[in-house]
Design a protein around this nucleic acid. Structure first.
Lengths: 343, 343
DNA sequence: TTGAAAGCGCTAACAA
DNA sequence: TTGTTAGCGCTTTCAA
C-alpha cells in the first residue's frame, strides 16, 4: 500500500522508494531489493529492467530501513586515539583507500588513551550494528576483549602484535623493532646508552627488545628516562637537554618515538653537537621528516599507511565474502631498521 | 504487541528494546521515548522512573529505528581530501573533540581532489540523512553548491574564505596570508623573488596576495614555478635544486606550502647554503616542524586544529538548538605572519 | 502529561 | 525465479 503522495508529509514527493522503482519495472518491491542486493537470485532480464528503473528514478535505498530490517549495517567503525599522530591518520587514510568503492562507510570514534572512554565509545557504536570494528591499537581492557569475542562481529586490531587477537590483526612487533635497534647499537659499540620514552605499553615492549639485544652483545642500557606524555618535537628538545644534564657521559640514545628523536636532533644542531660523533640518536616509527633531514635519522620503519590499507583490504575480503581459505587473518608486518646517519 | 522472546530470532534475547524499559518502568513505550528525547515533556517523577529502568536494562535506542521513523540521523558527515595532510587530520581531530560527548557520530568520506568524486560521495551519504555535512575545503562544483543550498541540511565549509558560503564557514584568507608574506618580503628588501607552488585554487590566491603586496613596495615576483602536485618534503628538496639551476640569481623564495619549504631548508643545509644570508625561504601553513627547526621557518600560521574545533562547536550549537542569534555563522580565522629566521 | 494506533521503507520467511 | 505477508523498533499523530 503506497503512502499517498498528496499529504504534506516531509519532502515525501522528493523521496524515491523501492515501491516506485518496482512499479516502474513492473515487479514486486522484493524483486527490486533482490536485484540490487543479490543479483544472482534474479533472472538477468529482470535485473536489467530493474536497473533501468533505478537509473530513471535515481533510487537509492534508505539505509535505515534496510538496516533496521536486516539487523546489520554497512558501517565500519574506526576507533582512533588521536588523529594528530600521523601514524594513525595515515593508517585511517590507508583503510579508507582500501574500502573506496565498496558499500562500506567509515565512522570515526575517539577512544583517547583510556579504557573507560574505550568502553563508552564502544557502547555508543554497537547499537548501530556496525559491519566491523577497527582499532588502531590493541583493545586494552580484558573485559572489552571478552565482550567483543562474544559478539559475532568482525574486529580488526592494528598496530601491535599479540598471539591472541580478538579476531583479525594487522600489526608489527614493537619488541622486534627494539631488538633490531639494540643489535645495531651493540654493533656500533656504544658504551653509555640511554633510553628515553614511554615505559608502558608499546614503549615497554620496544625497551625490552632493545635491552635484551644489547645484553647479547655485552652492552646494556645504563639509564632509562621514562616519559609517558612526550608527543611533540618540543618535548624531544627538552628531553635532550635533560638527558645531557643528568647523564653527561651518554654516547647514544634510543628514543621511543621519532618525534622525540627529531626534536632532539634539532636541539643538537642548535647546541653544535655533531651526530653521530658526539652523540648517537635513534628513533622509532620513521616519520617522513626522519628520512629527509640533512642528517637523516636512524630509526625503525613502520609502514603505517600500508598497514591501514592492508587492514582495509582484509576486512573488505571478509565482509564481501571473498576470504577464501583465510578466516582468522593475522598479518605481521615486518619492521625494518633504517640505519641512516645519526646512529 | 511484544515479539515473543522464545523464537530463535537473531540474538533477540540480547537486545533490550524500548518496550522492555517501558514495562519495567510501568509506562508506555512512547513515554520512554519522550523521557529520553524531550525530558521537558514528561513529569520529573516519570523521567526518574524511566531513567532507572534504562540504567537497569542497559537500554540504548536502536538508531536505525529512530532514524527511519523520524527521518533524520545523528550522523555528521566529514568530507576530506586526504588525511595524510596534517592540516586536515588536525582539523578533523578538532571537530571530533568539539563534538565529544554529544549525540553526534562522525562519518568520514573521501572526496579526493575531484568534483566527480565529490558528487558521488555526496550521493552515497545523503540517503543517510546526515544531521550536517562538513567539508574541509569549499565545495568545488557549482552544481553541488546549488544542490546543497536546496536541501535543508546544515553545511559547514572550511579552510578557505568566500563571501558566499553555502551555509556556515570557518576559514581563513589565503589571499591575506600571501599578502602578509609579500609585505614582509618587501620590507626585507629582497630583489630576486620566486614563487614555487600551486598555481591553482588556494595556491593562486596566496600567489595573488603575495604579488600585489610586493608591487606596493616596488618589488615583484620575478619567476613563478608552478607545482601542482608537490606534497612531500622530497618534492621540496627537488624544487630547490631546480630553482637554483633555472634561476641562479634568486635571493628569496616563497613556497606555497610548508612541506615544500621545509624540504628546501633541508636541501640548503646539505648544500651549505646559509639561511637567510644566501637565500631567504618562506612557507605557508606552519607545520609543527617549521617552528622547531634549528633555523625556524618564516611562514604563515594557520590554526588547523583550532579551526576544526571551532567548526565542530558552531555546528554543535546549531544542531543542539543553542545558536541564539547566530544562524548563518561565518568565522574568519586570522592568519599570522611568523617571521622567524629563514626570511 | 500520558497513551493508542499507525507506519517510516525495507527485507526475512515462507509460499507459489 | 518471483511474490505475499509480516514486522524490524522506534516516534509521529491524534486522542484522552
Amino acid at each position: 500500500m503506497a503512502r499517498s503522495r498528496d499529504k504534506p508529509f516531509a519532502k515525501a514527493t522528493e523521496t524515491v522508494r523501492i515501491e516506485d522503482v518496482a512499479k516502474l519495472a513492473g515487479v514486486a518491491p522484493i524483486t527490486v531489493s533482490r536485484a540490487l542486493q543479490n543479483p544472482g537470485k534474479v533472472r538477468e532480464s529482470t535485473r536489467l529492467k530493474v536497473a533501468e528503473a533505478v537509473k530513471k528514478t535515481g533510487y537509492v535505498a534508505n539505509p535505515f530501513a534496510s538496516n533496521l530490517r536486516s539487523g546489520s549495517s554497512n558501517i565500519i567503525s574506526f576507533f582512533v586515539s588521536d588523529l594528530r599522530n600521523p601514524h594513525f591518520s595515515n593508517a585511517m587514510q590507508g583503510s579508507a583507500d582500501a574500502l573506496e568503492g565498496s558499500a562500506y562507510k567509515l565512522m570515526m570514534s575517539q577512544i583517547g588513551y583510556s579504557e573507560e572512554v574505550e568502553a563508552e565509545a564502544l557502547n555508543s557504536v554497537l547499537p548501530m550494528r556496525p559491519a566491523a570494528l577497527v582499532f588502531t591499537g590493541l583493545v586494552q581492557s580484558t573485559a572489552t576483549r571478552a565482550r567483543l569475542r562474544d559478539q559475532n562481529i568482525p574486529v580488526m586490531e592494528m598496530w601491535d602484535f599479540t598471539p591472541d587477537p580478538i579476531d583479525m590483526l594487522v600489526g608489527f612487533s614493537n619488541y622486534e623493532g627494539g631488538r633490531m635497534m639494540g643489535q645495531h647499537f651493540g654493533k656500533c659499540g656504544y658504551k653509555h646508552i640511554a633510553y628515553v620514552g614511554r615505559s608502558q605499553g608499546r614503549g615497554a615492549q620496544r625497551l625490552q627488545g632493545f635491552q635484551e639485544a644489547l645484553l647479547n652483545t655485552g652492552a646494556s642500557v645504563e639509564r632509562i628516562f621514562p616519559m609517558e606524555g612526550g608527543r611533540s618535537l618540543a618535548d624531544g628538545k627538552k628531553a635532550l637537554g635533560d638527558l645531557l644534564e643528568q647523564f653527561p657521559d651518554v654516547d647514544a640514545v634510543f628514543f621511543g618515538t621519532d618525534t622525540l628523536a627529531v626534536g632532539a636532533i634539532f636541539e643538537c644542531r642548535t647546541r653544535g653537537i655533531n651526530l653521530p660523533e658526539d652523540l648517537a640518536i635513534a628513533g622509532f616509527g620513521d616519520l617522513e621528516v626522519s628520512g629527509q633531514l640533512s642528517t637523516p635519522l636512524t630509526t625503525i620503519h613502520v609502514a603505517s599507511y600500508e598497514m591501514g590499507y592492508e587492514a582495509g583490504k582484509i576486512l573488505r575480503n571478509r565482509l564481501e565474502g571473498r576470504d577464501g581459505e583465510v578466516t582468522n587473518a593475522t598479518k605481521l608486518f615486518p619492521v625494518t631498521l633504517m640505519a641512516r646517519i645519526t646512529a
